[in-house]
């Protein structure tokens, strides 16, 4: 199936993009990597009058270290993040998560900013950003602003993005020696939308956890930070008994939305399977370092 007819514009400057957005409003869609938008158009689930191709805007590309944060431009592809030495050094969680994003062909085209602006509850990047306390950078004709990822994702496919704003990039804190990250997800086949996924961003003093951020994907309408369980783990040694306490706490805390094939109970169970795996790995890692 092919999409309905639409006009296509490829602006060469941000100013031009904002002008188009202002004059066309909701009739215009922004095209970045096109891995969600083009499928939606071809299935005629959406018929915008205008598609604005932003791939000509060079200022939206690139990965840079800015102070104590790692900034990734919106048009950076999943593959570029996966292969970036800068990312694997400073934000290893992203390197771990990238291979889980769909398939190679999609990773070659799909973008960081596209995934963030779309805000799919099963997407990897929004979940990683929420786990790492990342910031989303937005720009509008009135200027730029930064918003914490946990405030950016509001509801199912609903973000804090204003109609005249675009996502220009997002940053995460640079990883230090004390940090430990993990990412894993469960899907029926590799590359499918995950049934459940978990990103862990922890920091330790010796074997004692100072911070254990747990962000689940595929569970709620937005990345789900398990704040109660996180609070429970602060100041604890992550031994196997503590891991079981965390799992029990997650069982009570998580209230997953079902999908057509998985009940909330299934999802809750799978989420705790991931939690047990990743937290046990954290324990093993810290024990090895301490020895």
């Amino acid at each position: 199936m092919k999409s309905a007819a639409f006009d296509y514009v490829k602006p060469a400057a941000m100013a031009e993009l904002f002008e188009l957005l202002q004059s066309h409003g909701d009739d215009a869609r922004i095209l970045a990597g096109g891995q969600t938008l083009l499928a939606t158009l071809n299935m005629r689930l959406s018929e915008p009058k205008l598609v604005i191709d932003i791939t000509g805007l060079q200022e939206l590309r690139g990965i840079h270290q800015v102070g104590d944060r790692l900034y990734i431009g919106a048009l950076t592809t999943h593959t570029e993040i996966e292969n970036s030495a800068l990312v694997s050094q400073h934000a290893p969680m992203l390197t771990m998560a990238a291979p889980h994003i769909a398939h190679r062909a999609i990773r070659n085209s799909g973008t960081w900013g596209g995934s963030i602006a779309y805000g799919d509850p099963a997407a990897e990047w929004p979940c990683c950003l929420c786990a790492m306390d990342g910031h989303v950078h937005l720009q509008s004709p009135n200027g730029s602003r930064k918003i914490s990822a946990t405030d950016f994702f509001i509801d199912l496919y609903t973000t804090a993005l204003a109609p005249d704003e675009v996502v220009v990039g997002a940053d995460v804190p640079l990883a230090s020696q004390a940090d430990w990250f993990a990412f894993d997800e469960l899907a029926r086949r590799h590359g499918d939308y995950a049934v459940a996924g978990l990103a862990v961003a922890a920091s330790f003093t010796g074997k004692v956890a100072q911070r254990v951020n747990l962000a689940f994907l595929g569970i709620g309408t937005i990345p789900w930070r398990a704040r109660r369980t996180e609070a429970l783990l602060v100041g604890k040694t992550l031994d196997l008994a503590t891991v079981e306490i965390a799992v029990a706490s997650l069982k009570a805390e998580l209230d997953p939305l079902p999908d057509l094939t998985h009940t909330p109970e299934t999802k809750r169970h799978l989420a705790t399977v991931l939690a047990r795996r990743l937290l046990s790995a954290a324990h093993a890692n810290r024990s090895a370092i301490a020895v």
Partner: peptide, 17 residues
């Protein structure tokens, strides 16, 4: 139809919303 294919994953969330 395609809605079931594409949206099946999120139907409950969307309905609640």
């Amino acid at each position: 139809g395609k809605l079931g294919l594409v949206g099946g994953r999120m139907i409950d969330g969307a309905a609640k919303q």
